[in-house]
Nucleic acid binder design. Structure first.
Length: 288
DNA sequence: CCTTGAACCTGCGGGC
DNA sequence: TGCCCGCAGGTTCAAG
């Protein structure tokens, strides 16, 4: 049984789905469920972040999964009836493919049973995640996607784009890169890591960045996300081969979660500040 | 228009 | 042992 346990660990506990994690989930789902027919759906809780629509099960059952893709941190499961399931993991969500003999666990909210005796399970303790249905025809104009900025790993997200869009913005650079209207998919962890790599302090006013700094930032974002996706991909591969736990934060972060520890580059003590309610970790020697 | 901060929810770890 | 408190994460929405 090809069980895909998408279980991300940082210091042994936290699951933190940012763009690389969602990308890894999507690739795993693509392998695991594309082509399968949904026999039945169990919605065990409707009160997720957005309510699961009352006839969700009836609309979805009997459909075949055509493909699985991603936009920002949204998981898109395309069905043969021309509809798309839009899923979001929130901050604690998981998507797991198991045998349909597996007993429902706590916080298993939606279960899709396939005709081949496997099932897809959406589990989300905090219920910040959700599962919606949308017509594939108008997917790109759906309210959820309308305001989103470019994907960070496309050419559309480049130095000129950033220079143009930081004009007259008075917010700190970290808040700018974490705002989905500017660029999607950069959460707290990779924002900290990208700013370290770009040698820019998180509380710098974004419109004050020099062109060279913008260049470093754009490249750092792409590199940090790409490296994390590669790490996720290899972990997924390892998991399938060994049935071990997929711990894909096996690599150490440079600054995230390292307050009072020493910078790997210059041995300066890593600092932490709060920016609009979020912790920012940085090295005030390496970052300016 | 821009910016800030609270709210949503649960589990876990630290302090007492 | 157990209770209380703070914190973590992504996104939206209200208020300044």
């Amino acid at each position: 049984m090809g069980k895909v346990q998408l279980n991300f660990c940082q210091k042994g506990r936290v699951f933190m789905p940012e763009l690389p994690e969602v990308e890894t989930v999507v690739r795993g789902l693509s392998d695991q469920i594309a082509g399968k027919q949904i026999q039945m759906v169990q919605v065990r809780r409707h009160d997720l972040r957005y309510p699961v629509e009352a006839n969700f099960d009836k609309i979805v059952q009997q459909q075949v999964v055509r493909s699985v893709s991603r936009r920002a941190k949204y998981i898109l499961i395309h069905l043969s009836n021309g509809q798309t399931i839009i899923g979001h993991l929130g901050m604690s969500g998981r998507m797991v493919v198991t045998s349909n003999q597996t007993r429902p666990a706590k916080h298993d909210h939606v279960i899709w049973l396939f005709t081949d005796h496997t099932q897809l399970v959406f589990n989300d303790a905090r219920r910040f995640g959700f599962v919606l249905l949308a017509d594939s025809q108008v997917l790109h104009t759906h309210k959820i996607f309308r305001m989103l900025g470019p994907e960070p790993l496309t050419d559309e997200f480049n130095i000129s784009y950033v220079i143009e869009h930081i004009l007259n913005r008075k917010i700190p650079v970290k808040q700018w890169i974490m705002d989905n209207k500017n660029v999607v998919g950069i959460g707290n962890i990779y924002a900290c890591e990208a700013l370290f790599k770009a040698k820019i302090l998180p509380d710098r006013k974004v419109s004050d960045l020099q062109k060279e700094e913008v260049s470093q930032l754009v490249h750092a974002i792409k590199e940090v996300l790409t490296a994390a996706i590669c790490a996720g991909g290899s972990s997924l591969k390892d998991y399938v081969q060994t049935s071990g736990t997929l711990g894909y934060f096996q690599h150490q972060f440079m600054v995230y979660g390292r307050e009072n520890e020493l910078c790997f580059v210059c041995q300066t003590v890593i600092k932490r500040i709060k920016q609009s309610g979020r912790s920012s970790f940085y090295c005030d020697e390496c970052q300016r």
